[in-house]
């Protein structure tokens, strides 16, 4: 997925002089996860460069660049580091268009690795999507595979609204079923690892059915798509797995269609449970599909604790927990 992200940046930088890429360690070195490797060499230092360690400054200058007419793609080294920039994101990027009567806007993309499963401890493992989905004016996107990562990132760069682009870091180098004891798998054999050359888009706001089923709908995104697939296989539950891909805008039609078909719904995310995006999904399903539901909506999520270092696998909502929820949903 690292290559897919780099490819998306490369395609857009080649095509559009206005696209600039920057962030901590992003320039010469190519980023701690290597997503921008080679871009400075190819496009020059003024279009791909290192930034001081100041997230509020990174986002603040990106807003100014966007208002000027560039299309900045800034990297926040870990999603956990984004909080100093919260005011710039929430009060500024998200509201420029609104407060100026559409005179100004900032078409910026903030890429940030999220999620755990790499022994990152409590400051390198968080999934803060809900702190962004709660903010009107932002779009929030999370790919689960290389094909989507490239297509969604190109869409995000071309979008005239600010986009939070969360990259599950456990998926950078391969799909992950949630079994840490099994050997790591590379993307190469995965059907969604193929990324066509050049420009293509995956539109924001369109979910994808990863596994068709009639028994229960699983709403998930990012790493949890792969975990949910594993859980369905291991339990034998006839689950329909919906990869939301984009949380705002949300593909509500796909959600409603699936839940009305299955009559059951399990929501899975890695972020903490309380006030997580799953709460919004549960409310939407309850409001729109109440009479189709055979059993209560269930959520599987990270516990409401910081992400622990040593106890990572007790925290991570792995296939066993998801599987139990699937079985419970089927039983009533």
């Amino acid at each position: 997925m690292v290559e897919a992200i780099r490819d998306a940046l490369d395609v857009k930088m080649a095509e559009d002089q206005k696209v600039v890429v920057f962030g901590e360690d992003v320039g010469y070195f190519g980023g701690v996860f290597r997503c921008t490797e080679g871009l400075q060499r190819k496009y020059g230092k003024s279009r791909c460069f290192d930034a001081p360690i100041n997230e509020s400054g990174i986002v603040g200058v990106a807003i100014g660049m966007g208002a000027y007419g560039l299309r900045p793609v800034a990297e926040i080294q870990f999603a956990d580091y984004v909080y100093p920039a919260y005011d710039q994101i929430v009060s500024e990027a998200a509201r420029l268009r609104y407060r100026s009567g559409a005179e100004f806007f900032a078409p910026l993309v903030l890429r940030m690795p999220c999620g755990g499963g790499i022994y990152g401890g409590q400051t390198h493992s968080q999934s803060p999507e809900a702190v962004f989905t709660h903010v009107c004016g932002l779009k929030t996107v999370i790919p689960s595979n290389p094909y989507d990562a490239k297509g969604l990132l190109i869409s995000a760069i071309e979008d005239d609204d600010p986009v939070i682009f969360l990259e599950p870091k456990r998926l950078y180098n391969g799909p992950f079923s949630g079994h840490p004891d099994q050997p790591a798998v590379a993307w190469a054999k995965h059907p969604l690892s193929e990324t066509p050359e050049g420009r293509y888009v995956v539109p924001l706001g369109k979910a994808a059915v990863r596994r068709e089923g009639k028994g229960v709908t699983v709403l998930c995104y990012g790493t949890m798509v792969h975990v949910s697939e594993a859980a369905a296989e291991e339990t034998g539950v006839d689950a329909e797995i919906l990869d939301l891909r984009s949380l705002i805008p949300l593909d509500i039609d796909a959600i409603v269609a699936s839940v009305e078909k299955t009559g059951r719904c399990v929501i899975v995310h890695e972020a903490t449970l309380t006030s997580g995006f799953g709460a919004e999904l549960a409310a939407q399903v309850a409001e729109r599909c109440f009479y189709a539901l055979e059993t209560p909506i269930r959520r599987v999520a990270g516990w409401d604790t910081p992400y622990p270092h040593a106890e990572e696998w007790s925290y991570f909502p792995g296939p066993e927990r998801v599987g139990r929820a699937l079985l419970a949903a089927m039983e009533g």
Binding site: V59, V61, G64, G66, Y68, L70, P72
Partner: peptide, 14 residues
């Protein structure tokens, strides 16, 4: 304040 700096950086980049 940082937005102004970013706008100025963009002018220089362009």
């Amino acid at each position: 304040y940082p937005q102004a700096v970013g706008w100025a950086m963009a002018s220089a980049i362009a």
